[in-house]
């Protein structure tokens, strides 16, 4: 397991998520794809934090945790995003009785 391998796996996951987010019709499927992208970003951050030395490392050993701290924040923000996003999806469903994104665009008033 090397840094490059880890980064490439994360990149593949990100691109799969990107494809899904662009090419799916169902809002919830798009949501899932976005979650995959979040995860791959987290993976990248933690991998970089694990293998790459920040400039401050020599002075402050805790700076090795910067990647993990960022990942924690991203997870927290993702949780908020899902709560709000699903709230919007429910609101959308209430108005259009559908979770189809293409229909939602057509029914814009």
């Amino acid at each position: 397991m090397t840094l490059q391998a880890m980064l490439i796996v994360a990149a593949i996951l990100f691109c799969i998520g990107l494809y899904g987010a662009l090419a799916r019709r169902n809002v919830i499927a798009v949501f899932m794809s976005i979650e995959i992208m979040f995860n791959s970003v987290n993976l990248t951050l933690v991998a970089l934090g694990r293998y790459v030395a920040p400039h401050a490392l020599a002075a402050d050993i805790e700076s090795a945790l910067t990647g993990q701290v960022f990942a924690v924040f991203i997870i927290a923000v993702a949780a908020a995003e899902v709560a709000l996003g699903l709230g919007i999806v429910f609101a959308l469903y209430r108005n259009t009785e559908s979770v189809d994104l293409t229909e939602a665009a057509q029914m814009r008033r």
Partner: peptide, 20 residues
């Protein structure tokens, strides 16, 4: 059968591949 693709399938795949 709820997880259908939209019309952007091919461009999306291309963008994703390019980014990869």
């Amino acid at each position: 059968h709820g997880n259908l693709p939209n019309r952007l399938q091919v461009p999306a795949a291309m963008v994703a591949a390019l980014l990869l």
